[in-house]
Design a protein around this nucleic acid. Structure first.
Length: 600
RNA sequence: GGGGUGGUAGUUCAGCUGGUUAGAACGCUGGCCUGUCAAGCCAGAGGUCGCGGGUUCAAGUCCCGUCCACCCCGCCA
């Protein structure tokens, strides 16, 4: 139906007659001349209707409205001197229409098709087909395609096989809440949608496929965030006969190719490597945004020299005091400091102590500290006149967590975060276990198939299991062969070297207080597979949505997903989820406990 | 489950200490207009003020409840 895409028409086409198709993006009707921007996926080109060229077609052109679908045939000509539009690629030319075919009409739109839309997100999602016509969103979708393509090309070049794994699968314990699918043929039984293809990809390694990957939907029935959807896409891969650094260097190269292919950007400096403990110490987070420093400093040792009860009590109860230097913010008013305090409290801290470095030190708590202590603290934080020092005292976890959030907030306020800068980091040497205080047991920090560090293996296998009752046992010192990759403060991926020996896996379940019977029902198929010559293997999964969001400079993964869901996990376009017929439920052997409220 | 912000024309918003005819811009409809590209000018249509209840002579405005959207905590790697 067409000879060319609208956005591709150039001066080299001048003189030729072209058929073009697209949508009427905007029309400018002068009574005499009518200009219409014809838009397709590639961009826009101006088409002109003149009464002198064809009076009948010109008459028809008056009737064209926004988003009418047109096919036109006309001669490309250079625009008259002075009427060129340098702001669009096709701005030197226009198409004089000699044939017009209105392929479809459009009702007036609920919102305008333009980049700077003012429409609410709900309205945009309800009419996503219109939203996707907006160039910014369209470009995000194209960017996503390019990312996936770069990944496929790269992994293919490295000998990876794309293998599909089941979507109707088995509910697994630990981790997120499952989406369940009732089985018609097996009354009372349910499939779960996969939270990840974890078990299957390990089985593929036992199968001898050596290198597997998949760009695959995963499902987790948890509450949503700007960077979390109930269904999301992972770049999932697994390799046999590898060590941690084999996986890391593979992904390094893959990420570099993605940046090059998608953004045309060379990532030259090697990605940072931080041990988990170091990341927590310096940034209070295992996904630090390394685009700025603003590091946390432990001042526990220094502030012992004081009579400030809050700090002293915290320290004697095993807590710590850490602070950071908000450069130049000594000018903050009492109100601004109160607001920061409230913010930190909303993150879980009891309070926020502040000391302004001016000629002297200005602070409600300064009087509790000897002068040399204040100086020593200021030295530790490298505070100069005009700076604001902020401190949180609490259990290490609370201190790190709240200061990490405060750091991110201040990074924004101090304009330390630049767009167009991409800082990648590997976080390694994670603890294998994490104490769950509610359930009074250890949980796997990554997942229960993660291998302990080789040097910790003997202790792992031999230690007294009576230690499992307490949060401070030797168990917390065992490290995992796990690694996360972090981009600009977002965790974009994580993986590990897996356990490939049955005895080690059994031991792991014992540590997690999962009985052999339970382990057998939940993932007996993997355990059995491990007994038949499972090779050493490991892998990683990257969040495609988050990666593309960052590449696109978007604020939410919803902007890089064609049909996203709202915070209540509803699709405004299709209105899923919805109620179903009683008959369908009956076939599935299930009954809903929910009673629809009366609608009088 | 909890905290915060918002919900008024098709859209984005304004609407004060409650006061009788709820406004603006864009969009839409009609007219004029031969070089616009956010076209311009003139005229017009368009409202369940999210929903339910309450207080009041009187509610977009005050109170209670509820629904929806977004951000965050919990939850989730």
């Amino acid at each position: 139906m067409r000879d060319k895409y609208c956005g591709d028409v150039r001066e080299t086409d001048v003189g030729s007659t072209l058929s073009l198709t697209g949508w009427a993006n905007r029309w400018r009707d002068h009574g005499g001349l009518v200009f219409i921007d014809l838009r397709d996926r590639s961009g826009v080109v101006q088409i002109v209707f003149s009464p002198e060229v064809d009076a009948e077609i010109h008459e028809l052109a008056h009737k064209i409205r926004n988003e009418f679908v047109l096919q036109v045939k006309g001669e490309v000509r250079k625009r008259p001197e002075g009427t060129e539009n340098p702001s669009i690629p096709t701005g030197q030319v226009e198409v004089v229409v000699k044939e017009l075919n209105v392929l479809n009409e459009s009702k007036p739109l609920p919102f305008m098709i333009e980049d700077e839309t003012e429409a609410s997100e709900l309205l945009r999602l309800r009419h996503r087909y219109l939203d996707l016509r907006r160039p910014v969103i369209r470009e995000n979708i194209i960017l996503r395609h390019k990312t996936a393509r770069a990944v496929r090309e790269y992994l293919d070049s490295q000998g990876f096989l794309e293998v599909e794994t089941p979507v109707l699968t088995k509910s697994t314990p630990e981790g997120a809440r499952d989406y369940l699918v009732a089985s018609r043929t097996n009354p009372g039984h349910f499939y779960a949608l996969p939270q990840s293809p974890q078990l299957f990809k390990q089985i593929l390694m036992v199968s001898g496929l050596e290198k597997y990957y998949q760009i695959v939907k995963c499902f987790r029935d948890e509450d949503l965030r700007a960077d979390r959807q109930p269904e999301f896409t992972q770049i999932d891969l697994e390799m046999s006969f590898v060590k941690r650094d084999d996986v890391i260097s593979l992904i390094d190269e893959m990420i570099k190719k993605v940046f090059k292919d998608v953004l045309g950007k060379e990532l030259n400096e090697p990605f940072a490597r931080l041990k988990y403990s170091e990341a927590m110490e310096r940034f209070g987070s295992d996904k630090p945004d390394l685009r700025f420093s603003l590091e946390l400093k432990d001042v526990s040792g220094l502030v012992k020299e004081s009579s400030f009860k809050v700090f002293l009590d915290t320290l004697s109860n095993g807590g710590i005091v850490k602070g950071l230097n908000a450069k130049g913010l000594a000018r903050y008013s009492r109100k601004e400091l109160d607001d920061l305090t409230k913010e930190v409290q909303s993150f879980g801290a009891k309070g926020l102590a502040w000391i302004k470095a001016k000629k002297g030190f200005e602070s409600p708590i300064a009087k509790f500290f000897p002068e040399q202590t204040l100086k020593a603290v200021a030295d530790r934080l490298e505070a100069e006149e005009g700076d604001l020092m902020l401190f949180v005292a609490d259990k290490p976890q609370v201190v790190n967590d709240t200061l990490a959030r405060l750091r991110q907030e201040l990074g924004g306020r101090l304009e330390l975060i630049k767009d167009d800068v991409y800082k990648l980091a590997w976080i390694t040497d994670y603890p294998l276990f994490e104490w769950n205080d509610e359930e009074k047991r250890y949980e796997a920090m990554h997942h229960p198939f993660t291998s302990p560090m080789e040097e910790d293996l003997e202790m792992f296998l031999s230690m007294d299991t009576s230690e499992l009752q307490t949060p401070d046992s030797k168990l917390s010192s065992i490290q995992a062969q796990a690694y996360d990759i972090v981009l600009n403060g977002y965790e974009i991926g994580g993986g590990s070297i897996r356990i490939h020996k049955k005895a080690v896996q059994d031991r792991m379940f014992e540590m997690l207080k999962i009985s052999p019977e339970e382990a057998d029902t939940k993932f007996g198929f993997l355990l059995e597979a491990l007994e038949y010559g499972a090779p050493p293997h490991g892998g990683i999964a990257l969040g495609l949505d988050r990666l593309v969001m960052i590449l696109a400079g978007a604020q939410s993964i919803r902007d890089v997903i064609a049909f996203p869901k709202t915070q209540k996990a509803v699709c405004p376009l299709s209105n899923a989820p919805s109620s179903v017929d009683e008959k369908q439920l009956k076939e599935l052997h299930i009954r809903s406990l929910h009673v629809e409220p009366d609608q009088d």
